[in-house]
């Protein structure tokens, strides 16, 4: 998978593409952890181009979400339909803040 980091004002953006599975979990976990710790409490994980996701990837997202909560920051996800369907299957949509596209997510994070 390809991990791309961007910054938009005080918002950290991680763009993931390709397969997000067990083999990629340790690296993504580490990158997100660093961003949560060093960032301004505004993190967008853009998975619009993720083609497949498994439960170990969900675990990475949960750990980032929990770390962000400790910092009272906000983690927003943008999902491809395949990611969205696994998130709904595991009922994580009741916890994660999900936006339909990067623009809406950036607007939501910028607004507060």
């Amino acid at each position: 998978m390809v991990i791309n980091e961007q910054k938009h004002d005080d918002i950290d953006i991680v763009v993931l593409s390709g397969r997000f599975v067990m083999a990629d979990a340790p690296e993504v976990r580490e990158r997100l952890k660093t961003l949560v710790e060093a960032g301004q409490g505004k993190l967008l994980v853009n998975m619009e181009s993720v083609t497949f996701i498994d439960s170990s990837a969900c675990a990475v997202l949960i750990s980032a979400f929990k770390a962000m909560q400790l910092k009272t920051g906000r983690l927003v996800l943008v999902n491809s339909p395949i990611v969205q369907s696994l998130i709904e299957l595991t009922r994580l949509h009741t916890v994660f803040e999900i936006m339909p596209n990067a623009e809406a997510a950036i607007a939501a994070l910028a607004a507060g």
Binding site: E88, R91, T94
Partner: peptide, 9 residues
Amino acid sequence: LSPYAEEVK
């Protein structure tokens, strides 16, 4: 939807 969204769908 929220709880049990996949079942409702």
